[in-house]
Computed example of a mutant assay.
Amino acid sequence: MTSPTARTEMTQAMVVFFSFCCGAIVANLYYSQPIIALIAPAVGLSSHGASLIVSLTQIGYALGLLLLVPLADLLENRRLILVTTAVATVSLIGAGLSSQPGVFLGLALLIGFSSVAVQMLIPLAANLAPEAARGRVVGNIMGGLLLGILLARPVASLIADHFGWRAVYLAAAAVMAVILLVIARTVPRREPAHQASYGQLLGSLWTLLRRYPLLRQRALLQGLMFAAFSLFWTAVPIELARQHGLSQSQIALFALVGALGAVAAPIAGRLADAGYTVKASWLALLLAPLAFLLGVSQWGYSVVGLALTGVVLDFAVQLSMVLGQRTIYGLDPHSRARLNAVYMTSIFLGGALGSAVASALYENYGWSAVAWVGALLPALALLVFAWSRRTQ
């Protein structure tokens, strides 16, 4: 039976609060990206193994999406969000105090696994929002989430530069503790109408994937886009430090410029509500490979060129992500958490792949190889989209 709170009005204040929570929670996945060169020697990891910190966090997130997020269609949502956020808080504290490589990597996996509360908050917001404004509400909340992704890097660099990398994790844990208290007091309860066993719920993920071609298409497109996104943002701090001599604080400013791409999220939501999903998707899928091709030009090797690549890439990835999310939420209102789980799992598996190969690709072949592979991934997504449009 669906709780009356499912009809609670999604006020602007709630949208702002959901945006902040989503941004703060998802930031846990990205704090390590610009500071892996500081973390690795402190916990006993080699330079080639440093990117495991990022990729294991994203693999943990993908596992959480697959195993935990579907429970939002079965269990009371607020309680589920509180439990997962509490685990994230404890994991962050453990990572901040850890000095053993195996322990730290295990905690990195758990941080990702327990940070999926953000993907329970977004479907909850979609359920609370009226149909006519759903794209705008989801777009605005995704704007907060994407700002969290993009601001996590500069915040981590600044804190690490002045207080050390351990302070990054401890500060993140403090933020999670505050969010726990606020969620407990402000987020409405929602009891889903879906009735099934946990095994049936997980099995239904495959059923949904088979039933909806649009879900398969959007999951593949965004997986490829996010692989390129993670490849760039894992490798570019190394390039900036080694080839341009930037400090952690300067790398933070660079990442802050990249956060300009987050303006795509609310724009995407409004475009989707207005019926421009296909045209906006073409734009996003064209911009991403063009951003990387700029990076292999002579001017693109400069700090300004790399920053422009980051801004354009971020804009394209965020635009495509929100358009895809708005599309899949319209497929089955009673299965939004599971649809979101399938969609986001593919995205973060792509992100984990991009992060995992970034260090080895850069160390063995340099920045040009990163840029060419980065261009190839969204180019493949563009071909998939063009082929799917033709068959339709």
Rank of each mutant, 00 (worst) to 15 (best):
A280W: 10
Q100E: 11
T5N: 11
G351H: 09
S335K: 10
R242P: 00
A117N: 13
L339M: 09
W367K: 00
A235W: 05
R326H: 05
L145D: 08
L208G: 09
A27V: 08
V118S: 12
V43I: 08
Q33N: 00
T345H: 09
Q243D: 04
L150H: 07
N77W: 07
G330Q: 01
L353R: 01
S98I: 12
E239G: 03
F17I: 01
F254V: 10
V187E: 07
L221G: 11
G351L: 12
A291D: 14
M176R: 05
S32D: 02
P4S: 08
D73R: 14
G366I: 03
Q243V: 04
D332G: 04
M14K: 01
A369G: 05
G164N: 07
S230Q: 12
G275W: 04
A268T: 13
T234H: 02
V311Y: 08
V54S: 05
A381L: 00
Q58V: 06
P289E: 13
V16Y: 00
I328E: 01
I179W: 12
F18Y: 12
G23R: 01
I122A: 02
N364T: 01
S359N: 06
P213G: 14
Q392L: 05
V317P: 15
L107S: 15
M344H: 15
G23I: 02
L110V: 08
G144Y: 09
L107G: 14
E9R: 02
H194C: 09
W282H: 03
S355W: 05
R336P: 08
A235K: 07
G330P: 01
A252H: 08
L147K: 05
Y362M: 06
T186H: 10
L260T: 09
G96W: 14
L382Y: 03
W282L: 06
Q250N: 07
L231E: 11
W206S: 13
V118H: 03
A125P: 04
V175E: 13
Q12G: 00
T89Y: 08
A358F: 03
L97V: 15
A27G: 07
A352E: 05
P378D: 06
W206N: 09
G275M: 07
V90Y: 15
A129D: 00
G324R: 10
V384N: 04
L146P: 02
V168S: 06
L349E: 02
I238D: 04
T5R: 05
P188R: 13
R78H: 11
M14L: 03
S320P: 10
G203A: 09
K279T: 01
A133V: 00
G60W: 13
G350F: 05
I35T: 01
A337M: 14
